[in-house]
């Protein structure tokens, strides 16, 4: 364990997991909001919106995340000039990574919410319409609150997957845990297995409680019918 007794190594190890948490947090919030919007589009009566939602899900859900992240750097930033920070490379790369992660994860959030919408009995929407509610009101006040509460547990799975997917942002230069693990292994060829176990163990330690938390939330928030 001589690798982690070196304070410099401990610092990069801790900062790498802090970055994972930041990436997960930022991308998670954006993906949640945008994914619900996408789901609303996919069930809306407007064909253009439905088409957009379907296209988004099919494109991003079926493209490997490494390619999406690659595109965020070489497509969005290098060729299209989408820049989050001119003078801070790390900040720029971080948000390019968040963009890719959020675009990808939103597709999964959208499909999860849509499956949640199917759990709401059709009579609920009929009743709302009978009361004179518009489509927006029906969705916002009646359907979505029930739909999202029924898919809390799958949201937990998406969040866990997102946290692990965040390591892919390392490929465009964000020093998250997988990159730092590679660096430590490169510097300490004699301690490959211990380093690997520490990084894998940290992920498990962070994500197992997340799974239980969402399981507990799912039970608490379930709609009783």
């Amino acid at each position: 364990m001589h690798v982690f007794s070196d304070p410099a190594n401990r610092a990069v190890y801790l900062s790498s997991f802090l970055l994972i948490l930041k990436l997960t947090g930022a991308a998670g919030v954006i993906a949640l909001v945008f994914g619900v919007v996408l789901a609303a589009m996919r069930v809306s009566p407007v064909p253009v919106l439905r088409g957009f939602g379907t296209a988004w899900v099919n494109v991003f859900r079926n493209t490997p995340l490494t390619l999406i992240i690659f595109f965020c750097y070489f497509g969005l930033f290098v060729n299209l000039g989408v820049t989050y920070s001119d003078d801070d490379i790390d900040l720029n790369n971080f948000w390019l990574g968040v963009t890719g992660l959020a675009a990808y994860t939103a597709a999964f959030v959208c499909e999860t919410v849509r499956s949640g919408i199917n759990t709401v009995p059709a009579g609920q929407a009929d009743a709302a319409r009978a009361l004179g509610m518009t489509f927006g009101q029906t969705l916002r006040l009646v359907v979505l609150p029930q739909a999202t509460r029924s898919v809390v547990a799958p949201f937990g799975s998406i969040l866990i997957a997102l946290a692990k997917n965040a390591t892919i942002v390392g490929t465009i230069g964000v020093l998250e845990s997988a990159s730092v693990m590679r660096q430590l292994i490169n510097d300490n060829g004699d301690a490959v297995i211990p380093i690997f176990l520490v990084f894998a163990g940290t992920f498990v330690a962070l994500l197992v409680p997340t799974g239980y938390l969402f399981g507990w939330l799912a039970k608490r928030l379930a709609v009783r019918r």
């Binding site: 690659f70 750097y73 070489f74 490379i89 490929t171 465009i172 020093l175």
Partner: peptide
């Protein structure tokens, strides 16, 4: 310092 996982990406970025 811009880091990638492969030199080929660095060379691509240099070309761009």
């Amino acid at each position: 310092l811009q880091l990638f996982d492969a030199y080929s990406k660095c060379v691509e970025a240099l070309g761009q």
